[in-house]
Design a binder for these strands. Structure first.
Length: 486
DNA sequence: TCACCTTGCACTTTTGAATGGA
DNA sequence: ATCCATTCAAAAGTGCAAGGTG
């Protein structure tokens, strides 16, 4: 796994670049990813399974951090399930309102986060664009990838001005669906999710189900799926291995019990290894250009595709300030990494005016006198860009809003037409091969050109300001940030 | 007709209040 | 009075099938 994360170096004594994030249940994630993970989204919200479980290290033990997750579109396509594989079904729909899930323990000292793994079990996904509960809103039949943010901040208010780092793991990408498409994924979910236990075996539920339907056969679809799968020779081989493993496991348990050893800790990863999941690679790998799993084939098409997928390690290390991702050498006219973009929505700015000032007000305070209507930006998230793409046209109807955040030396917000400071808006960006940026902005932005500020001209080339601050807005618990991207 | 979405069902797990004993 | 363990009901989380929608 290569770092697809930002390089948000901080001036604080504790070097931000040392932060490591590890995906705890990566084996399970890989099992799903090999088949093409699907996540159910419902109107009231649905948990993810597998859920994101991460561990973090390298934090300052006494500094406070906020842990957040958002979902980033993997590409710009909509998909459909055709027989036994995912196919591109057209262009992606406009992104719904962007939400970020904040871990309920936030903010907490680094020692708290590093003490044990961080479970994001309660994160819920919904397809309800008007969702009032703060769940993460996704489009069905679109592919997403969770992105984790570690923000050094003492409270949720100061998140907006705090240094942060972002991480993502390729194997956590998934297709949002309202009903499962791939029966193998269904089986995997049933086998591993405790709540779906009732669909596993010839249990009470299956009997009741048959009784209810008045039919004698294995009417429970889960059972039918199981019996179908059992006919597969590959499954039979794996099942044999599985039974062998179970036998070994029981033997070991007996030995431990008889020798009065401490209880064996539950190790889901080992259990996963023993489950016969070595099924075929996802058929979507066949199409080099249009498949949802292109990241394995053509990294330039993937969201975080700066290197081929590597499952040898699920750990990510954010390099220090001067380190750049490998895609840099693809650029002809590369400019520094700018992962920050500040957008100024012109609506609902009144809400923002109620926000407290940033902690270090002197360096961040908005100077309305120097506001320039056409310059209100910064850059592209997590990517290098070519200079020719720094300026983009505004007002494209199908344009997607930009990911944002704010370098410390840039104004956090500007006056809008009402004379009020407006908040940054969280969104997404359209990415082109080789990290070029082709982002556009919704029509609600009236100015005609989205100019790159003078700070990013050639004279200021080279690695971007390492005193890197950013923010990750629109976290769901904070209604002031409930901005729509459109 | 088709693809996708919503709803209600039966089941399981989790949660939290109530209870009782040390 | 406090703490801890247990019990139990309610709430929440599952996948499924049927029906609805565009």
């Amino acid at each position: 796994m290569t770092p697809s994360s930002s390089t948000a170096g901080a001036a604080e004594p504790y070097h931000q670049g040392n932060i490591r994030l590890t995906l705890e249940n990566s084996d399970l994630w890989r099992s799903f990813h090999n088949l093409g993970t699907e996540m159910i989204i419902t109107k009231p919200g649905r948990r993810m399974f597998p859920h994101c479980n991460i561990s973090v290290s390298g934090l300052s033990p006494y500094a406070n951090y906020v842990i957040m997750v958002d979902m980033v579109p993997v590409d710009n396509f909509r998909y459909k399930w055709n027989k036994d594989q995912w196919e591109v079904a057209g262009k992606a729909e406009p992104q719904p309102p962007c939400r970020t899930y904040v871990h309920p323990d936030s903010p907490a000292p680094g020692s708290h986060w590093m003490k044990q793994s961080i479970s994001l079990l309660k994160l819920k996904l919904t397809n309800n664009t008007l969702d009032p509960h703060g769940h993460v809103i996704l489009h069905s039949m679109h592919q997403y990838q969770p992105r984790f943010h570690v923000v050094q901040a003492d409270d949720l208010y100061s998140v907006r001005w705090a240094p942060f780092q972002s991480f993502s793991f390729t194997e956590t990408s998934f297709t949002a669906v309202t009903a499962y498409q791939n029966s193998k994924i269904t089986k995997l979910k049933i086998d591993h999710n405790p709540f779906a236990k009732g669909f596993r075996e010839e249990g009470t539920h299956a009997k009741r189900f048959r009784a209810h339907k008045g039919q004698p056969g294995p009417e429970n679809p889960a059972k039918k799926l199981r019996t179908d799968t059992e006919k597969d020779p590959e499954y039979q081989t794996c099942a044999g291995l599985f039974l062998l493993c179970v036998w070994h496991l029981l033997t070991w348990m007996c030995l431990f019990y008889l020798t009065d050893y401490p209880r064996l800790p539950y190790d889901p990863q080992r259990e996963d290894d023993e489950v016969p999941l070595r099924l075929k690679q996802g058929p979507n790998l066949q199409d080099e250009h249009m498949s949802p799993w292109d990241s394995e084939q053509d990294p330039t098409h993937s969201l975080h595709g700066d290197a081929p997928m590597d499952f040898s390690s699920s750990e990510q290390l954010v390099p220090g300030q001067a380190t750049h991702p490998p895609y840099r050498n693809k650029l002809k006219n590369s400019v520094p990494i700018f992962k920050n973009v500040l957008l100024t929505p012109l609506s609902r700015s009144e809400d923002f005016s109620r926000l407290p000032s940033p902690p270090s007000a002197e360096s961040h305070r908005v100077d309305h006198r120097h506001y320039e209507p056409s310059v209100d930006v910064a850059t592209v998230p997590e990517r290098e860009v070519t200079r020719s793409h720094i300026s983009v046209n505004m007002g494209t109807p199908q344009g997607r809003p930009l990911d944002y955040s704010v370098p410390s030396h840039m104004p956090l917000a500007s006056k809008n037409k009402h004379g009020l400071a407006a908040p940054p808006m969280y969104g997404h960006y359209t990415e082109q091969p080789y990290g070029q940026w082709n982002g556009t902005i919704p029509t609600q932005y009236p100015t005609s050109t989205y100019n790159h500020p003078h700070r990013l001209t050639a004279e200021h080339g080279g690695p971007h300001h390492s005193h890197h601050h950013g923010n990750v807005s629109e976290w769901s618990q904070y209604p002031l940030f409930s901005y729509s991207c459109w």
